[in-house]
Design a protein around this nucleic acid. Structure first.
Length: 362
DNA sequence: AGTATTTGACCAAA
DNA sequence: TTTGGTCAAATACT
């Protein structure tokens, strides 16, 4: 618990410092003719930092009022260890236990898992489905929700039976903006997709996995990625609606250095310099490094909104072994983002970092 | 034929 | 009793 408090405090400080730094940079750049993309992105970074800082403060406030909201990190007993040596999530633990009961006792409603990631994805291009996140999901239910105009869809991991993966997600179209989907992830993937590291891919190499009517099908090619990212920074917004605290068991696990998250095994790889930028690294992981199913791509959502930067928690982590899904070709020439660069102040990028070398996505 | 989706029913929590 | 999550048979798709 003490470490957790330090984490949050450090994160809070980091976010405030980051916001201040970016604001300073922006101030400098306002004096010079600089790209609007950069300025937009910096504004978003500033907002993101302050939003996250506020989230931490709000979370602490609510947690102090109610002991029922306890971060998963410390509230559960020791997790089991998976076959690859990494600890399974506490959520998996709870979920798996519940699911075993389901097997014995049909249709028993499970206890809500404690680890929930919630993100908002906007699909303003008019496509039907919400964004793709790189996992294979099978729809197992749809329900009209009383408080919502649109039905809620329930998905479980395709590898539930074959690999005993109990991750699920719910997709709810927003009432206010039908182009926005609220996606709630429950449970961590324990399938090969969840355990493996990130792998670059060529969208055209991927076999078809899901039906087109439920998916975004604006597949972009690698050559477009850099341009898309530039545009992306224009439209990118971070939405931090007040999510219920009961659903924010791991509310602040965005990959900030203060968490030391990157030291964990199986963690998504992030350039070291980007780790200092929790917002950007989250963006990086979620939308640049995540392999996706055929109908999607790294920029499948013209605009996306993340309430919770824990979304990366479920990102696939492998360079290989994503069954039947992606090409194993990982050479730099097939990188989805050739000559990738961030529209940031160059000072922020480690000059030694091999963005343009074969080590970048290998 | 195998796999994915749809949808009404079931069940537990609230 | 209501509501939301899940199951599983029926159906659709490949």
């Amino acid at each position: 618990m003490e470490n957790e408090c330090n984490w949050e405090q450090n994160t809070l400080i980091n976010e405030l410092i980051q916001g201040m730094d970016v604001a300073k940079r922006l101030k400098e750049e306002l004096r010079t003719p600089y790209s609007l993309d950069t300025r937009d992105l910096q504004v978003q970074m500033i907002l993101s930092s302050y939003e996250k800082a506020l989230q931490i403060l709000r979370y602490n406030e609510s947690a102090s009022k109610s002991q029922t909201v306890t971060p998963v990190i410390t509230s559960l007993p020791q997790s089991p260890v998976s076959t690859n040596g990494s600890p399974l999530s506490e959520d998996f633990d709870a979920t798996f236990q519940d699911r075993k009961e389901v097997k014995n006792k049909s249709k028993k409603r499970k206890v809500v898992p404690k680890c929930i990631d919630q993100i908002r994805v906007s699909c303003e291009s008019g496509f039907e489905g919400p964004h793709e996140d790189g996992f294979n999901w099978r729809k197992y239910g749809q329900k009209d929700i009383l408080s919502a105009k649109h039905p809620r869809s329930y998905y479980r991991c395709t590898f539930r039976n074959t690999q005993n993966c109990w991750a699920t997600k719910q997709v709810q179209r927003s009432d206010e903006d039908p182009t926005i989907f609220d996606i709630t992830y429950r449970g961590k993937h324990t399938c090969s997709q969840g355990n493996n590291a990130i792998v670059p891919y060529k969208p055209q190499d991927i076999k078809k996995q899901e039906k087109p009517h439920s998916q975004i099908n604006d597949i972009h090619h690698a050559q477009q990625s850099q341009e898309r990212f530039t545009n992306f920074s224009n439209t990118l917004t971070v939405k931090t609606d007040n999510l219920g605290n009961e659903e924010m068991a791991r509310p602040f696990t965005f990959p900030s250095t203060s968490f030391g998250y990157t030291t964990q095994e199986n963690h998504s790889w992030v350039p070291s310099t980007l780790e200092n930028d929790s917002f950007l690294s989250s963006l990086f992981q979620t939308h640049l490094l995540s392999p996706a199913t055929p109908e999607s791509n790294y920029f499948s959502s013209p605009t996306f909104h993340m309430n919770d930067f824990d979304g990366f928690y479920n990102m696939p982590h492998s360079e290989s072994d994503i069954p039947d899904m992606i090409s194993t070709n990982t050479s730099v020439t097939n990188s989805p983002i050739p000559n990738f660069h961030f529209p940031l102040d160059p000072v922020e990028i480690d000059p030694n970092f091999p963005f343009n070398t074969s080590g970048f996505f290998s």
